[in-house]
Amino acid sequence: MKRFVLPALFLAACSQQTPQDEVANAPETKLPATNTPAPEAPLNPPAPGEPGGLPDDRTPVLESPIDPKSAQGAGQVLQTYFALAEQGKSADANKLWSEGAEKLDLSKYREIHANIGAPGGMEGAAGSSYVDYTVQLYGRLKDGKEFKSRGTMTLRRVNDVPGSTEEQRKWHIYKADFA
C-alpha cells in the first residue's frame, strides 16, 4: 500500500497551483487611473544681485535689540506680515496695513514667500515717518503657476506727537508697488 500512496501524493502536489502560478494565470486587471498631480519643482527665487533678486547688499544684520520706532522695527512688521501670509492667515496679515491702504490681494496665491531687503533711509513728513523696503515675492498662484515679483513696500508710523494713539505710533504697511 505504501507504493500507491506516494505516487498519489506526488500527483496531487504536482496538480496544485502555487500562488505564483495563480498570479501568472490570472486575467489582466487594469488599475484605476489616479489624479495625483506630478510633484512640483522646488521654488527658487533669483539670488541677490541677479535680475529680479534683491540688491546684493552684504551689510550684516543688526543683532542688538531693535527699537520698535526704527527702520528695523518696520522690517519686523513686514516679516510678521509675510509669515502670516505664508500660513494662510490673510485676515491677521491685513491688520498690519494702514487704514485705507490698498492691500496686496493674498487670495490669488496658493503659496507665497518673501525675501525682504535692507531698509532705505527713514524719511519724515507731516508728523509721520516712512521707510521703504525692497521685497522679492515668489511662490505659486492658485492655478499652480510659479510667480516671481520684486517691488517696494513702504511702511508708515505716526511720530510721538500730542494726540496720537499707541496704535498710530506703530509701523503699518502704507503701500506696495510690485512689477
Rank of each mutant, 00 (worst) to 15 (best):
S90V: 13
P32F: 15
D21R: 00
S90N: 11
D92E: 15
N35H: 11
P45E: 13
L54S: 11
L78I: 10
V77Y: 01
P48W: 03
K175G: 08
H113V: 07
A114I: 01
G52A: 05
W171R: 06
T165V: 06
Q72D: 12
Q17S: 11
R157K: 10
N25S: 10
D57Y: 12
S64F: 10
V77G: 03
E22V: 11
P68Y: 15
S129G: 09
A24L: 05
P27S: 14
K145C: 04
R169A: 06
K95C: 00
A85Y: 04
R157T: 09
W171F: 06
A8W: 01
G52D: 02
I116H: 02
R110H: 07
L43K: 06
G88W: 07
E146K: 14
P7N: 00
L9K: 11
S70Y: 12
G121I: 01
G121N: 14
M153Q: 15
K145P: 03
T34G: 02
L9D: 03
P60T: 04
A101W: 04
Q168G: 06
T80V: 00
L31E: 03
D56Y: 08
E123S: 11
T134F: 02
I112N: 00
T134I: 09
L84T: 09
G139L: 10
K69W: 04
Y138C: 00
P65F: 05
V135E: 13
Q79R: 07
R150E: 03
P119I: 11
I173E: 00
G144M: 08
P39Y: 00
S164N: 01
D67N: 13
Q136C: 01
G100E: 01
S70D: 10
Q168A: 15
V61S: 02
L62D: 14
S129P: 10
P51I: 02
T152C: 01
Q136D: 04
L31I: 11
S107F: 04
A118V: 12
V158D: 12
E63W: 08
G124Y: 04
Q136T: 04
G124F: 08
T152D: 03
N44K: 03
K170L: 09
